[in-house]
Simulated assay, not measured.
Amino acid sequence: MSRSSTLILFFTAIFLQSGAYGLTFMLPRLFSSFGASEKVVGVMLLVTTLATIFTVYFAGHLSDMLGRLRTLGIACFAISGSLYLYGSVSSVGISLVLASVLLGFGWALTYSLAPIVLTRLVSAAERVRFFALLSIFVMAGFGLAPVLASLLEKFGYSIRDAFYVTSAFCLISAFLFLSLDKPIKSHALNPAPEGSSRITWASIVAVLKSRALLPVIMVCLGASVFSGLNNFQTVFADDRGLEYSTFFLVYTMTVIVFRLLLVRFKGGKNPYLTIAILQYLMCASVVLFIVSGGSALLYVVVAILFGLGYGVSYPILVAMAANDAEEHLGPQTLQLFALTYFVGVFGFPLIAGWLIVEIGYTPLLIIVAVLAAVEATMALRRAIVPSRKRF
């Protein structure tokens, strides 16, 4: 198998399993079908967060034993089982908890190990380009999953059917990853055996003392902003009389188009300045959403600005985490990067769900805007004072 064919199949597998995360945006709608509130969504995503944190810590140990591609295959089997359980539950109970645990386990492995696999195939100079491609396929998967759910509902199917369909996609993804084990090893830039990926307390301390600490913290803030605006988008849209699929479709297409342009862009002379500018746009999009009311036109503008701000800055931030990492701590840095991402993306909805139920969603959106401003300012500070060790 050629290197190009290997990469195409790898990105296809990424795309097929990425829809699983996109369906977490549909959980409020799914849960409402059996009388559960946004608080329950937050609690279940907290369960996912705990499973994710535990799994990320041991992801390296598991991949060292089984190999990274085999571990990715196992992860996709777990995600498939999770989605099937979500689609079949009719009340809050152990099946819902198990589904959340399996999702955290599977998504933690795929998200933390996929970039490490990719670094074996590309040089440091190619990282922004190929991390952008990786993020394009991830974004296409979870951005189009809600659109698929909306289309199925319009054709008379239920939201549960979207979970079943995506579960099948994840099974295909699992078999693709398993089939790529030998081809990826044969095309690795460094023919030596894979280095250790396991996280230890010593490696955690070393990463926290390195320049990579900044992107590790920033991704947590950005993930909180992302989940705050996206996980309850169906709630926001229903309240304002808008069509949630419009937001996800416009957002996804914006991200894909601009990340395709980013494939030839290396972040500029000062990548952190680029990140800061984009994230201030992200902040502006949230502020606009707060005041836009039921305007369909402004809803589209919000989606475009958020797609440009968050969607384009993210792959540059991943590349900066890899480049700021100590050479011998690359896998551990990327896994901690994934860990803090999951803390934000699965943990923040617990706060968000509570705020929506108790005091409404406007205070939530204000908090999200503040977090976006803080993250952008952190990037700006690194851009202005790049020589600082960590901040």
Score class of each variant (00 low, 15 high):
L23R: 00
L23F: 09
T24F: 11
T24C: 09
F25I: 02
M26R: 12
M26F: 09
M26S: 13
M26I: 08
L27Q: 06
P28L: 01
L30F: 09
F31C: 08
S32F: 14
S33H: 01
S33P: 07
F34A: 03
G35D: 12
A36K: 02
A36Q: 14
S37H: 02
V40R: 08
V41M: 05
G42N: 10
G42D: 02
G42H: 06
G42C: 01
G42P: 03
M44S: 14
M44N: 03
V47A: 15
T48L: 13
A51C: 04
T52G: 12
T52P: 06
I53M: 13
F54S: 15
T55I: 12
Y57F: 13
F58D: 01
H61F: 15
L62T: 07
S63M: 01
D64W: 11
D64K: 03
M65F: 14
L66S: 06
L66M: 07
R68K: 11
R68F: 05
R70P: 00
R70Q: 06
G73R: 00
A75H: 02
A75V: 09
C76R: 00
F77Y: 09
A78Y: 00
A78E: 01
A78S: 13
I79R: 00
S80M: 05
S82F: 06
S82T: 03
L83V: 07
L83A: 11
Y84C: 11
Y84K: 05
L85R: 00
G87T: 11
S88W: 12
V89S: 11
V89E: 11
S90R: 12
S90W: 04
S90D: 07
S91P: 03
G93Y: 02
V97D: 04
V97W: 05
A99F: 09
V101T: 05
L103D: 10
L103K: 07
G104R: 09
G104Q: 10
W107G: 01
W107D: 07
A108V: 02
Y111A: 13
L113A: 05
A114N: 14
A114D: 04
P115E: 12
P115I: 06
I116K: 03
I116L: 06
V117L: 14
V117Q: 08
L118Q: 13
L118Y: 12
T119E: 10
T119I: 00
T119S: 15
T119A: 03
L121P: 01
V122E: 06
S123Y: 12
S123F: 01
A124M: 05
A124S: 12
A125L: 14
A125M: 09
E126W: 13
E126H: 07
R127C: 07
R127M: 06
V128T: 15
R129D: 08
F130C: 06
F131N: 04
A132D: 09
A132R: 11
A132T: 13
S135G: 03
I136A: 07
I136M: 15
I136F: 10
F137N: 10
F137R: 06
V138F: 01
V138I: 14
V138K: 02
L144S: 10
A145Y: 03
A145D: 05
P146Q: 01
L148Y: 09
A149P: 00
S150E: 10
S150G: 12
L151S: 10
L152C: 10
Y157E: 08
S158F: 01
I159M: 10
I159N: 11
R160F: 13
R160W: 04
D161E: 14
D161R: 07
A162L: 08
F163R: 14
